[in-house]
Amino acid sequence: MDFLNAIILISNFIIVPAITYGSQLALGAIGVTLIYGVLRFANFAYGDLMAFGTMIVILTTWYLQSLGVTFGFLPTALLALPIGIIVTIAISLFFDKTVFEYYRKKKSNPVTFIVVSLGLMFVLNALVRIIIGPGDVNFMDGHKFIMKAREFKNITGLNEGLAIKSTQLITLITTVITCSLLFYFLNKTKTGKSMRAYSDNEDLALLSGIDPKKIIIITWVIVSILATIGGTLYGLDKSFKPFTYFNNLLPIFAATIVGGIGNPLGAFYGGFLVAFSEITLTYAYKKFFKYLLPENLEPNTLIQFISTDYKFAISFAILVIVLIFRPNGIFKGKVI
């Protein structure tokens, strides 16, 4: 029984939250990595692009709610998602046309692209704050819990409860669907393969008759879809605050580099790696050991590797370690 309790404890406080957070990071990291693979720069405006997409979803959600439209037990935001995606695609393509295309034609160096993306970051940052404000927005409606801790305890008769929020399940399902579709697209369709080919060897792609313009447009479309979905899931699960989205860029970058920049599958794993390390290393295992160890061996400290304050710092530290030992990421293999 104690053993089961310990397992449930770990599931409730580590596995479920880490899978959720990992999915959100993975979606973000794949977006960053795709931009890097095809357009060849690190996009610092990505966090704010996620915020922008989420904002559109929220505004649409509010509009739908004002019309009395809801999505039953699911959050209305899922209904609003397509609108958010379309608007985000539009703004991405607009910025590509007005900003990035010029530097692409000039074949500017990566640093110029980074600086330009900083400019865009400021602009998006301002747009989001001007339109929706800097404050916290909670736009989750529908059923909050799939299983409450107490219900779980009642059913199983265990001491420990397992709570699963509906947003957590929605996050997982959406991520699985999105990523499966994406990897199917990249590996099985002609357009997806040509995207990988372009990312791998631009000159040869041109010699094979692959149209770079088309590839770039498709990339922005995919990236916008991922940004909007990732941002919305994060907002549903926690809450929407522009500043948080900007900050999330940092663990997303960490996940991207850990997975090998330009490598979507690596970014996917990288997101989960970062999330699991953050949560497992900051969790206090005292109760866990209480269940497993005989009474006289029970710990009297928290048994926590590092304090929760350092949650973000962990992902950065992982990144630094990876950069020192394996600058190309820990997952060898396909660059997109």
């Binding site: 990566p110 580099i257 304050d309 973000f312 710092a313 992902s315 630094v320 950069l323 600058p327």
Partner: peptide, 27 residues
């Protein structure tokens, strides 16, 4: 640690390390 890295990696890693510094000062 970082100066041997490519320019874009240097940008990202210095940004993240400054995040660690702030975390330490803050906590």
């Amino acid at each position: 640690i970082c100066l041997g890295l490519r320019s874009d990696y240097l940008a990202i890693s210095t940004l993240l390390i400054s995040g660690i510094v702030i975390t330490i000062v803050k906590h």
